[in-house]
Amino acid sequence: MKKRDLFIAVLVLLGAWLVISVIFDPPLIPSPIIVSKTLIEEIISGELPGHFVASLWRVVASTLLAITFAAPIGIILGQSKRLNRVFSPFIYLLYPVPKVVFVPIILLIFGIGDFPKILIIFIILFFQVLVLVRDRAAGIRPELITSVHSLGAGRRALFRFVYIPASAPAILTALRQSVGTAVAVLFIAELFATQKGLGYYIYFNSSTLFNYPAMYAGIIGMAIMGFGLYITVDWLEHRIAGWQFVD
């Protein structure tokens, strides 16, 4: 995608927002100009950046944890038909369960603080990474394994030279697919038992303070975080797994 096209799309969306806010003038949709002013004020006051960092930390920490645990398990299951046969029914059952339903339980068990929020995003990403890495590892062509084996590679070298590099793109694909869900669930999780994070900020400004411009500033913060994570994954994908994009 060209940067210029992206820029135009941003302008068109802002324009549409402006038109809607001017024509209908609903109290719930302040114009982007007012929101921008509030956004800048909130950034300068340090209020919004604090919440932003709190949210970002939760997403990044849970992502790193998910990769640390799920990727090795995915590789191990993917290269062993026998292990995969044992565990795949469990994964098959648990994978489609919408993990967001566990938010109340996890909050009840673990209470306040960052941990329950990180845990819930971790669970979502964990399954996504696990399944994609496992399938990628299982899908490696037997000819490739055979020929690397014939060069002298035993199990350890196969991990080092085949399974791990083959899984890197799967991890990134998993992140790309689930970054949106992760941010959405983070929002839900931040509605409860916290006074930090963009979710709390948005909710507090809307339902308690009725400060709609600030609420929108929070929404923009959340959007920027989601988009930023998305392009980071994109960038990493091109850097680490650039071979997928050559022509």
Binding site: R141, E143, L144, S147, F161, P169
Partner: peptide, 17 residues
């Protein structure tokens, strides 16, 4: 597999990455 035996297959023997 023996270190001094080389094996070449029809296809897919190279690391795609």
């Amino acid at each position: 597999p023996r270190p001094h035996t080389g094996l070449i297959l029809q296809e897919y023997g190279l690391l795609p990455w």
